[in-house]
């Protein structure tokens, strides 16, 4: 009961952060987006800047916007921001500050006869997010350019279900002129969103595990970030409870700062001897 309460406490933090960073309520009423100066700043989680409520810029969108611009080909601002956040907290952002992570967390609470923990090919499939980061976020916007030298944000355009859910659906619902411009791309992105939603009920955070380029960036910093887990080897009895409760299938006793760890704190709470700090 106490552990369940603490789980909801994390969801409370996630919801509060999602509300704070998407609090331009007039956008939802008018079918428009916030256009103020705050949009200079990146938010740490995956949060589409075309969400009617969004106050900040999505860091993955920002990277692609700068790489794909005609005059800049390297994105120092957004990359430096990701490095700063990652070096401080690693994938803590995924566990606590990402609105799309919260959506997946809540979807996974929907009962399903057989929730899938791991499967054959799971480990290999987790490398896919690094390929997506390199190909769709960096290489394609950099090299697949138009006559002006501008590249499209290919991850946002072809893959990101967060953009569809947070930006596409609300704007299309609220805006008649946008409804008249719908085509195959919108259909494709909705199919991807639907697949993500269904998979999220069955698998814990499938988007974070296999697709998210932002998680891929932060995962690199997990082992060396300033704030990270430490297992007291003198206290640890090797009972394996921490590994069993981990939704990301990490064994904290083996590697407490594994790149897949989203620092949700489930292992820390479950440890009967309080060996995880």
């Amino acid at each position: 009961m106490d552990k369940e309460k603490k789980g909801w406490k994390r969801h409370g933090v996630q919801a509060l952060w999602a509300l704070l960073t998407n609090s331009y309520l007039a956008g939802f009423a008018r079918g428009k987006i916030y256009q103020g100066k705050l949009k200079n700043l990146c938010v740490p989680g995956l949060n589409c800047y075309s969400c009617p409520g969004a106050l900040g810029a999505c860091p993955i969108g920002a990277v692609q916007a700068v790489i794909g611009s005609w005059n800049f080909k390297l994105a120092f601002y957004a990359a430096g921001f990701l490095m700063f956040v990652g070096a401080l907290a690693g994938r803590f952002v995924c566990g606590w500050l990402c609105p799309f992570g919260l959506i997946q967390d809540l979807l996974h609470k929907i009962p399903f006869p057989e929730k899938i923990g791991t499967f054959r090919g799971d480990r290999l499939l987790r490398k896919l997010k690094y390929v997506i980061l390199i190909v769709f976020v960096i290489l394609l916007p950099m090299f697949l350019v138009d006559v002006l030298g501008q590249g499209a944000p290919y991850f946002c355009k072809l893959i990101c279900p967060a953009g569809t859910l947070e930006g596409g659906i609300p704007l299309v619902l609220l805006n008649e002129s946008m409804r008249s411009a719908l085509g195959w791309l919108y259909a494709w992105k909705n199919v991807l969103l639907l697949i993500t939603i269904v998979l999220s009920v069955m698998i814990y955070r499938p988007f974070c595990k296999y697709i998210c380029p932002l998680g891929a960036v932060y995962s690199v910093f997990n082992p060396i970030s300033v704030f990270r887990y430490r297992v007291d080897e003198k206290k640890c009895t090797g009972c394996g409870i921490c590994a069993k409760v981990c939704g990301m299938q990490v064994d904290p006793a083996e590697n407490a700062n594994h790149p897949e760890c989203i620092r949700c704190g489930a292992c820390k709470k479950s440890c009967p001897v309080k060996a995880i700090h």
Partner: peptide
Amino acid sequence: EMAVVLEKAVNICMECVGIG
């Protein structure tokens, strides 16, 4: 670079929403 981010973020990103 911030100006590029701002320009992209204050206009509806057609690619992100699945139109452009």
